[in-house]
Design a protein around this nucleic acid. Structure first.
Lengths: 90, 90
DNA sequence: CTTTCATTTAAGTAATTACTTAATTACTTA
DNA sequence: TAAGTAATTAAGTAATTACTTAAATGAAAG
């Protein structure tokens, strides 16, 4: 969960779209995949990147895996950004 | 100046270090390059990515090119992030 | 004017990334 | 227990990215 991993995860358009989808609530991997023209394994890999960056939670229920936002980590990005509005401290 | 270009620009560790350096004030391309183990053309390319994403200003003075932060664009990133703390509007 | 210095552009390469299809794992249900 | 469904892992490939060195541009100073 480095800041680098975090920015790398956010640098992909499709991954950001996934995060956007999850703003409306949790979704299964398959439901997420249905919104894209990418293969399911492709989406699975994106989800794995998001999970490793702690941007999403994943929990398994039966044969489904539910994904949801971990909004706390967005605050790390926020903190990083804030430095550039305030001058020179930190 | 798309949000995609912006996140792509921020996804590189060295480019983020450049932005960090510029928090203390403007620097010439050469001064920036001195802080890195990368060749000058390498740094020049990073600066070009940052400039295209509007994260930095560049102005030429004699044979030097001065780079400085454009803090307004950070607010675009901020706006994007904020969506994920507040629930579901927008 | 020609030499020097700062920077960028050009061209090539190695590493990384985003995908694909095929195979595997894990769970559910007939 | 066999067949079907959801998701992931594995392995390969095409595209992108981050670098390199060499060449070009442009301003300054001898």
């Amino acid at each position: 969960m480095s800041i680098n991993e975090l920015f790398k995860a956010l640098s992909d358009e499709n991954r950001r779209r996934i995060l956007d989808l999850l703003r409306n609530g949790e979704l299964t991997a398959g439901e997420i995949a249905n919104h894209f023209d990418i293969s399911k394994p492709g989406i699975s890999q994106h989800l794995s990147v998001l999970k490793n960056a702690d941007l999403v939670y994943a929990f398994k229920k039966g044969q489904y895996v539910y994904y949801s936002l971990n909004s706390t980590v967005f605050q790390d990005v926020m903190k990083w950004i804030i430095q550039f509005n305030s001058k020179g401290e930190n």
